[in-house]
Design a protein around this nucleic acid. Structure first.
Length: 653
RNA sequence: GCCGACAUAGCUCAGCGGUAGAGCAACUGAUUCGUAAUCAGUAGGUCCCCGGUUCAAAUCCGGGUGUCGGCACCA
């Protein structure tokens, strides 16, 4: 006699076990038609599932957030059926819903190509049209294994084999086609609808392990209706326009070329942006009690052996040698990290606890031999500069230093336009240095510090650095990819390996703890993210070219030059556009090159000694006397950390 | 690194066995024109590299390199 409580609090009683379909029908024909699945006591279930006991039930319709996941999951099944119908002999593996869509991994000797999409999509529509109901059944484990083995689905058989004993083995059929699946599903394939599209093919390792076979993955996107699908496709196009590689070229910020794979050629405007951010960071670090240092690029392998990099990190290191006979056996490595160098500075001379915490910063240029497939624009490169620092401290200082760091990082991100970021906590990896005790201590200490600093994180198991656990501060790019920028790592290992010590209050020698930390991560990556975040339309203080003074007629040129000089004298980055072009054309060009302010000078302005300021890409304009225009723009161009203190003059970078 | 796709003028792209083309940009000239592209002309290419097939290769085949999308990697 289940009593079913609905979200609005009403209770319905039934004589015996009922399916969701029956309950929905009892409530009303509208709901019976709209319900795709249900939530029973918070758990998502098939509509055809029986409810035996009293329960709170909520029906899922197409409008509910859960519907998207169901649509995508079912779409993956439809894709799998379509592929097996068209390409006999293809084995199915897994096909989960993901953000914005779904994928399915197939085992097939010949990989799919986008040319196969039209046929597959057509078959999918056919299957959706047929609207076969999803029917759930269960099978004893051994039977299920035998069942899939007999069909030549060895991946499915293996999946079942590896399911925990407690797990019930459920299968879903849609017409003649059947698949191992946990569910739940909607009523039938027709509920998938037609707002789906296959997007791309890719190779993917079975179970994500590069030692396993490579499967052929098909990605698709699926939505409630065509309108949502169109909106998503449009959004993808927009994202493509923000791509830092495209904007970098369009704005003349940087380029990459074959002779220096993974290294950036910064052009004048890009370098201006870089210097602006660097100068900002330097001020921030100075104010936060850091001391900046500079350390060598090339260091003898002895140091890397001592630090543990030689053992743990060598495949990623660039090694050098010289031809000189007397020196030819010496191996110098280009530094992949700055930390060992900073320990060398710390070790130079006897340290006292009074000097701790010692915050040692460096804009350190590092080189790492990254796998070719990992390279991506300026976000993932082989040569980059970190806003790196190491805090040498005593154990009890870990928590307060973490809190200070997180506060600084949040302030920097906010100033640079990132209100949102998320934090991951990565604990001990398989390949690591140091004892279990030191890892226990480091992980516990960092967790405690997070608690004190009020940092919420998600756990990222096994992803720590080889010397210590880390916090990762993650920002998202235009294409929806996440990038680790900031980081904080607790390290008991390197001070030990490199023999760092200080004299404690009681006169004994102790090991400091090292906190490795970065806020931007690398300038290259961060600037890539920054470019995408603003789509190249930077706030005035960051814009490489802040103002273009454009003349309307040649007669106005002398005053335009005078105005540009005045703006430059106030510290602004100014370009002059005296081309023999109409003002319409100049407006278009400078909107395209993403200049924030256009100062227009015609005959009238030249006579009245005024400027017409137009904020691009907007249309509003205002006329101001030259001196006032200069003062206003100069004030506006003050970096956020200097705002409030003497406005007017702006550090050049 | 693995799977797949791609590589033609500065940029975006067409050409896909018969000796290279468009638009924009560049350059020259005319125009001096008040806020989203003035007109005309000129110039511009080892068709990524190396081999092969062919009377003939940008085009077909093989091998490299790079880029792009995933996967793996990201200390």
């Amino acid at each position: 006699m289940p009593a079913i409580t609905l979200p609005d609090g009403t209770v319905r009683r039934f004589d015996g076990p009922v399916t969701g379909t029956t309950v929905a029908a009892a409530i009303g024909p509208g709901l019976a038609k709209a319900a795709l699945a249900m939530q029973v006591d918070g758990r998502l279930r098939d509509l055809s599932a029986e409810i035996v006991d009293d329960a709170a039930v909520r029906f899922i319709t197409r409008r509910d957030p859960e519907a998207l996941e169901l649509i995508r999951h079912d779409a993956a099944h439809v894709l799998a059926e379509a592929v097996q119908a068209l390409f006999p002999g293809t084995q199915v593996t897994i096909g989960p819903p993901i953000e914005n869509g779904f994928y399915y991994d197939f085992a097939r000797n010949e990989p799919f190509t986008p040319d196969d999409f039209p046929a597959i999509e057509a078959k999918m529509r056919e299957i959706v049209q047929r609207d076969a109901p999803f029917v759930r059944s269960t099978m004893p484990r051994e039977d299920a294994i035998a069942f899939f083995q007999a069909r030549g689905e060895k991946y499915k058989a293996q999946l079942i084999q590896d399911l925990p004993d407690t797990e019930e083995i459920s299968l879903y059929s849609q017409g003649d086609w059947i698949d191992l699946c946990r569910g739940p599903h909607m009523r039938g394939t027709g509920d998938v609808g037609t707002a789906f599209k296959l997007m791309k093919v890719a190779g993917a390792y079975w179970r994500g392990d590069h030692r396993n076979a490579m499967l052929s993955r098909i990605y698709g996107t699926a939505w409630r209706d065509q309108k949502e699908l169109d909106a998503y496709l449009h959004q993808l196009e927009e994202a493509e326009r923000r791509d830092h590689r495209r904007i970098g070229r369009e704005m003349g910020l940087f380029h990459l070329q074959e002779e220096a794979v993974g290294s950036v050629f910064w052009h004048p405007r890009g370098w201006t942006l870089y210097r602006t951010v660097e100068a900002y960071m330097r001020r921030r670090l100075d104010a936060a009690g850091y001391q900046e240092v500079r350390t060598p690029q090339l260091l003898d392998r002895k140091l890397w052996e001592a630090s543990g990099h030689w053992e743990n990190y060598r495949p990623h290191m660039f090694l050098t040698h010289v031809e000189d006979e007397s020196d030819k056996d010496r191996v110098l490595a280009v530094k992949p990290m700055n930390c060992p160098c900073h320990v060398q500075i710390f070790n130079h001379g006897l340290r006292s606890y009074r000097e701790l915490p010692m915050r040692m910063a460096e804009f350190g240029a590092c080189h790492r031999y990254e796998p070719s497939g990992a390279l991506h624009g300026i976000m993932r490169v082989r040569a980059f500069t970190q806003d790196d620092a190491h805090i040498f401290c005593e154990e009890h200082q870990i928590a307060p230093e973490t809190a200070r760091f997180v506060a600084l990082l949040a302030e920097v991100y906010r100033d640079l336009g990132f209100a949102d970021f998320h934090v991951k906590f990565s604990d001990r990896p398989e390949k690591r240095a140091g004892t279990e005790e030191s890892w226990d201590k480091a992980e516990a200490g960092l967790k405690e510090a997070c608690r004190l600093a009020g940092v919420d994180y998600e756990l990222n198991p096994g992803e720590g650095a080889f010397y210590g656990p880390k916090l990762e501060f993650v920002l998202r790019d235009a294409i929806g990819r996440d990038w680790q920028c900031g980081t904080l790592q607790v390290d008991y290992v390197l001070p030990e390996r490199l023999g760092a010590e200080y004299v404690a209050e009681d006169g004994t020698r102790r090991r400091p703890v090292m906190l490795h930390r970065a806020i931007l991560g690398s300038f290259e990556r961060f600037l890539g993210i920054l470019i995408e975040e603003y789509a190249g339309r930077f706030p005035l203080w960051l814009a490489p070219v802040q103002v273009v003074v454009a003349s309307i007629v040649d007669d106005a040129a002398p005053f335009a030059e005078e105005a540009a000089a005045a703006l430059r004298a106030a510290g602004l980055r100014v370009e002059l556009d005296l081309r023999n072009e109409k003002i319409n054309r100049k407006v278009v060009d400078h909107i395209e090159s993403r200049v924030p302010v256009l100062a227009v000078v015609g005959r009238r302005e030249a006579e009245a000694r005024t400027l017409v300021l137009r904020r691009l890409p907007g249309r509003e304009q205002e006329t101001l006397p030259l001196a006032e225009a200069v003062a206003r723009l100069a004030a506006e161009a003050v970096p956020p950390d200097l705002a409030g203190s003497a406005p007017g003059r702006v550090a050049a970078g």
